[in-house]
């Protein structure tokens, strides 16, 4: 109960800050509109207002504060505007509609999941190789690290162009970018996890004359599960970012990335923000789903203490 109160307080503070931020962000637009509509604003000339601070404008035109939260194309939309847009584009639109966020989310989600599957598989395989082979540890790990230092926004268009030139398009290029972002946390987490058993545990298996295979399946893999799930949670969020980034340079017509892009072309800030929130909610759902799977798996393994 006490913690719920704390959580709600933080949430209220964020929303209050957001509403407050809308006022100076949108005041110029509101005053320009008001002036055109014939209202008296101070100062009266748009030219003068341009060089005044937003806070000063707010102070001189307190009557316009309410207007900053209901503009059609605000610089910063108010929380309720985003909420209404989200509601209208999810619940009130048919899923098949091009304006439905669910439709766009599902396009991005399919690329995310495909990329996540590829990235996770690749990550686990690389980790197994790195843990068992010193050569791989020394040759693969540095490249995995280097790969993550390149900004994905620079690399994504190249991946898409290269894949397009060999005739691959559609969901695959997006999934490749997704996988590119998500394999890394899985590699790092799995390497750590597979190396988690201490010297005593390894000695114990040696006294049984166990082979590498048995050591892997009976000790290393089960030991790595908590690490794997921590990595998967980072990986799935990275996958979603990858899929969205993959939609930007292609001028894709569907997907949350396309929605962001279209919103910015037409100055539809409400649309941009609702697409951002849709992406955030989607990521939260995916991470929560993984958390649930983690709980079930660890419970089955008996380590739910």
């Amino acid at each position: 109960m006490k913690s719920l109160l704390a959580v709600l307080t933080v949430l209220a503070a964020i929303i209050a800050f957001w509403y407050a931020a809308c006022v100076p962000m949108n005041i110029k637009g509101v005053l320009d509109q008001a002036e055109r509509a014939g209202a008296v604003v101070t100062p009266a000339a748009a030219k003068e207002r341009r060089y005044m601070s937003e806070i000063g404008l707010v102070a001189k035109n307190t009557f316009a504060i309410g207007e900053t939260w209901v503009q059609e194309r605000p610089r910063l939309p108010a929380p309720h505007q985003v909420a209404v847009e989200l509601w209208q584009t999810t619940v009130e639109k048919k899923v098949t509609s091009k304006r439905s966020l669910i439709y766009h989310a599902q396009v991005t989600l399919s690329a995310t999941l495909l990329g996540f599957a590829i990235g996770t598989g690749l990550g686990i395989l690389l980790a197994v190789g790195i843990v068992h082979s010193r050569v791989m540890d020394m040759s693969v790990m540095p490249w995995a690290i280097v790969s993550q230092t390149i900004p994905i926004i620079a690399l994504a268009p190249m991946i898409i162009v290269v894949l397009y030139s060999i005739g691959v398009q559609g969901i695959i290029p997006k999934a490749v970018i997704s996988a590119y972002l998500s394999f890394f946390p899985v590699v790092v987490g799995m390497v750590k996890g597979l190396r988690a058993p201490d010297a005593m545990q390894l000695d114990l298996l040696k006294t049984y004359n166990a082979n590498t295979n048995q050591g892997f399946w009976k000790l290393r893999l089960p030991s790595s599960m908590p690490y794997l799930f921590a990595s998967l949670k980072i990986g799935i969020a990275a996958s979603l970012v990858g899929a969205i980034v993959g939609e930007l340079p292609t001028g894709a017509v569907a997907g949350l990335g396309a929605r962001l892009l279209a919103g910015s072309y037409y100055g539809q800030t409400v649309q941009i923000w609702s697409a951002l929130f849709a992406a955030a909610i989607l990521a939260a759902l995916l991470v929560a789903l993984l958390g649930l799977i983690e709980r079930l798996v660890l419970k089955r393994m008996g380590v739910s203490a």
Binding site: M200, D203, L204, K206, T207, N209, M301, G302, V303, A305
Partner: peptide, 20 residues
Amino acid sequence: RRNRAYGYVFQAAGLYPWRS
């Protein structure tokens, strides 16, 4: 060791937490 001639007990029990 290869003939599994001995059982070894370490200072820590070292039981696998995921196994009964």
